[in-house]
Design a binder for these strands. Structure first.
Length: 186
DNA sequence: CGCAGGGTGTCAATTACATCA
DNA sequence: TCTGATGTAATTGACACCCTG
């Protein structure tokens, strides 16, 4: 709302928002990629996503001061507990972000809209070199993208595995992203 | 095979700053 | 002008996982 001097530029935020809408927890490669595209430090991108997730959580369930421990189990382990049935993990990727926040401030951003109805910032989607698209996303998703391998693929339930490979079509990429996140419902 | 340490990532909480009413 | 509320970027501390020796 307020364009604070400390805030990121609208274009940068638009890219991050759009990406967040599809993937709330980007892996290291995607983080670097976004940092590159947005002219930010990877750390900044990381922090942005972190804060974004935090904001989303707080909005969804406002801090209940009544019984914090009762309603919220340890929750610490959720950080690196991908396969577990953490309800929170799947939620942050709802809609809300792009529609309500990115839109008004994304003048120069070009989005790709596929038959899926999802929008992606072309800048990074176009350049993702994806190799082997795994058909079976249910348990072990392994998409290979031509770039340095992230350290912790398992950090996410359906993480991508970067290695080497060919191009994945935009539609395939989108479908992967769609499957790795909640349905956008747009 | 089991264990310890390093590296990495996430989350929750917190801080610092900017802006607005 | 001052103050409180709000939003955002960044930091800190704890925890969990993977990899390696």
């Amino acid at each position: 709302m307020r364009p604070s001097t400390r805030s990121l530029k609208p274009e940068q935020r638009a890219v991050l928002e759009a990406t967040f809408d599809l993937k709330a927890t980007p892996d290291s490669f995607l983080t670097r990629r976004l940092a590159e595209e947005c002219n930010l430090k990877p750390r900044q991108v990381q922090v942005w996503f972190q804060n974004r997730r935090q904001r989303l959580h707080k909005r969804k369930r406002p801090v209940n001061t009544t019984s914090p421990s009762a309603a919220e189990p340890p929750a610490k382990k959720a950080a690196a507990e991908p396969a577990s049935s953490e309800p929170e993990r799947s939620e942050p990727v709802e809609s809300e972000s792009v529609d309500s926040e990115a839109d008004p401030c994304s003048p120069a951003l070009t989005f790709y809209t596929d038959d899926f109805g999802a929008e992606l910032p072309l800048l990074w989607l176009d350049e993702l070199d994806v190799g082997t698209a795994c058909d079976d996303l249910g348990s072990e998703t392994e998409t290979t993208i031509n770039s340095p391998a992230p350290q912790r693929l398992d950090a996410e339930p359906h993480a991508f595995a970067f290695g080497s490979g060919e191009h994945l079509s935009t539609a395939e990429m989108l479908s992967l992203l769609e499957l790795t996140t909640e349905p956008l419902g747009r």
